[in-house]
């Protein structure tokens, strides 16, 4: 991948120019699906866009010192990391990529949640600190399963290159891995039943409590981009290999929307779990499947 294609992927497709409207679209899909499930009509189509513009026009409280600078910096880091993660997705056939870009994608997907933890602590609000502590506990719990699932997929197909993974036909083991990723996504995207860090009835808005105006707009945007990146990862792992570029894009979008709908339905149908139940769920229930997937992947690799 040379510099021009890398920039084109980061800025145009599937990067910012494509991902930002789709981030808003996915945020709207989630709210609308939850509203429909509750028998409401729900927000209009352009709602996340209006929210974003309105937040850009609001004031921010004065912040001073290093803490204030850090508070301004965290949402920007989160947005750029999430945009970079979207840019790495191999949507177009023969779009390039490099050996090990899966590992970079995982790191970039993890950065926004690191930023949320840091943001809650640097806001010095008690609610922010509780939210950050919850986010930290949650990310330790689900990341073990998430990473084991990715490792099992990569080990079964002998590559850490995303494009190669997307082109190879899916084995039964990969479906097991995709299932484990799907179980981790609600926790990664902070939606029910694992919406613990931003539990608004308990701790106001968690790490976001002290954020306002354009900074909050950046957090909303990074959340939307996380949706695009996380559902896009599932879509690239499940999509069959298609040589025609427009058909590949269409299939990618359709699969992403399907994952968004699935997650929204789960979010609307469940209530928030307590933190101990959540941690127990990931460490006791899901971990077994992840370990099974990894061990069978390694076993298959030894036999072949």
């Amino acid at each position: 991948m040379n510099l021009t294609t890398a920039l084109a992927r980061l800025l145009i497709f599937p990067g910012l120019l494509f991902a930002v409207p789709f981030a808003w679209f996915f945020l709207w899909t989630e709210r609308k699906a939850v509203a429909l499930m509750q028998g409401r009509i729900g927000p209009p189509f352009m709602q996340p866009f209006y929210d974003f513009i309105k937040l850009l026009g609001k004031d921010t409280p004065p912040r001073t010192g290093v803490g204030g600078m850090l508070m301004k910096l965290w949402p920007l880091i989160a947005v750029s990391a999430a945009a970079g993660a979207v840019g790495l997705l191999p949507v177009l056939p023969s779009s390039g990529g490099f050996e090990g870009d899966l590992i970079l994608l995982l790191a970039l997907l993890e950065l926004p949640s690191m930023c949320i933890i840091a943001a809650g602590f640097s806001s010095r609000s008690i609610f922010g600190e509780i939210g950050s502590a919850r986010e930290a506990v949650l990310s330790v719990a689900y990341n073990v399963v998430f990473l084991l699932a990715i490792v099992s997929i990569a080990a079964s197909q002998h590559t850490f290159r995303l494009e190669a993974l997307a082109q190879l036909p899916a084995s039964p083991l990969r479906w097991l891995g995709v299932l484990a990723i799907l179980v981790c996504l609600p926790a990664k995207l902070h939606i029910n039943p694992f919406s613990l860090p931003n539990a608004e009835q308990e701790i106001y808005s968690g790490p976001m409590t002290e954020y306002a105006g354009p900074e909050l707009a950046m957090w909303e945007l990074s959340h939307g981009l996380e949706w695009v990146a996380a559902t896009g990862l599932v879509a690239t792992l499940t999509a069959p290999y298609i040589g025609i570029w427009w058909l590949a894009i269409l299939v990618f979008l359709a699969l992403s929307c399907l994952v968004v709908l699935l997650l929204s339905v789960v979010a609307a149908a469940t209530a928030r779990l307590a933190i101990d139940t959540t941690v127990r769920f990931y460490w006791q229930v899901t971990l077994i499947f992840a370990v099974l997937a990894v061990s069978s992947a390694l076993f298959m690799r030894l036999r072949s």
């Binding site: 808005s205 976001m208 002290e210 909050l216």
Partner: peptide
């Protein structure tokens, strides 16, 4: 909203 900082 849960936080007055977010509200209009």
């Amino acid at each position: 909203e849960g936080s007055p900082r977010h509200a209009d």
